[in-house]
Design a protein around this nucleic acid. Structure first.
Lengths: 208, 208
DNA sequence: GGCTTTATCTTGTCATTGTCAAGATGAAAT
DNA sequence: ATTTCATCTTGACAATGACAAGATAAAGCC
């Protein structure tokens, strides 16, 4: 049969895929967002891409391998979301920049809730993938840097600044988790402004 | 064969169990804490109790039914943990009482991390079980009551007080999630005092 | 007591899944 | 042109969730 279109990652008549790894990650994220981790299966992802049921094994080993890759990709986009908001913030005030990053944090959680949950679902001490650990660490460092600029001291040298990091991170993370789980009682419509205002309010408390 | 002991929930020679529902919940929590949701299976729980693989179906319907029951039981003990800490607090100051409740919140998360994650893993809007919704709601009301005593106004009547609820809840929840996931960089040994001091510090910020 | 009803638990079955082993394909290296 | 190797497929097996049908015993009823 003929090829469908050059943009398709998989040409139906070819034995080899071309970029199966990327295609599996893309399809995996789609499956994850539709069904959550509960309905996630290697075989359904493989079927979505149009390859055999054990094609993923060669690239990711086992199921956890693909989930780790998804979480890694998630952390990279997570960091990008925070950086994007921070860059879009016109004020160069460290306080405003950190607030903007926090909104990027929430942006990501809202846009990819299942991925967000996956990323924070396991103990960091049990993480085997060095790529995942590095991507998660990079996200943390973004917040730590923000606090460093705010306080003028490195959190790794000044314990009180590290407490600031923990406070801000706990606040924005808790709010994000509770928000995407519909536990904060925000009405579905007309919420964005209220939501952003509340986030601003409470993040400022964490900075104090 | 003879019965083992009157305390055992299951007598080996009896067809009927006696209190299978409670036994399944107990065993289910054990399996959950050992393997996490990933390794959780109805059949392994049934095997742990010593009943057939489809015995749980009659009491919980499907796998999600048992997980819902576990989450419900979890929220009850979660509330009890907060109340226990609050009662143990000698000061009657609303501020100190709320701080004590927060420590109960973290206590529970640390003592039952897998259960804690399960309880907050899904959207409240998708919850079918009314028992689960009620148990979760009761936990939320405990925090809301604490803020009501602190502010002297009901959060349901005064928006600023509701913001206080969100701030405190986000802070303690985020800290708990990040702490049990080993993301806050607390050293394993000699941490409890530091941990409690940090929690006190940051919860006070949320109250401000 | 004897009978029926009902809740509880078991057995058997099927589709789905994760994982492994062995083989097929084709691209790259030599 | 041949070899080598990464990539993908096929086939198999055990574990699992879910369902149907049957076995057991407790409770209700006469």
């Amino acid at each position: 049969m003929a090829r469908y279109c050059s943009l398709m990652l998989k040409s139906k008549d070819s034995y080899h895929h071309g970029d199966l790894r990327a295609a599996l990650i893309k399809a995996g994220e789609a499956v994850l967002s539709e069904t959550g981790v509960a309905g996630f299966s290697l075989r359904s992802v493989a079927k979505n891409v149009g390859v055999s049921h054990s094609a993923p094994a060669h690239h990711f080993g086992d199921a956890k391998g693909l989930l780790d890759a998804l979480a890694t990709e998630g952390f990279r986009r997570f960091l990008a979301a925070m950086q994007a908001r921070q860059s879009a913030e016109t004020s160069k005030d460290a306080r405003q920049q950190l607030l903007a990053s926090s909104h990027g944090y929430l942006d990501f959680a809202i846009s990819s809730p299942a991925l967000f949950r996956l990323m924070f679902a396991t103990d960091m001490s049990n993480v085997k993938s060095e790529e995942l650990a590095a991507a998660a660490q990079a996200s943390f460092m973004h917040l730590a840097d923000g606090v460093a600029r705010l306080r003028g001291v490195s959190p790794f040298e000044e314990p009180t600044a590290m407490t600031d990091v923990m406070a801000i991170w706990s606040m924005v993370h808790g709010f994000s988790e509770l928000y995407i789980s519909d536990r904060l009682g925000f009405p579905d419509c007309k919420a964005p402004e209220d939501r952003d205002a509340v986030l601003n309010d409470i993040i400022k408390r964490a900075m104090a």
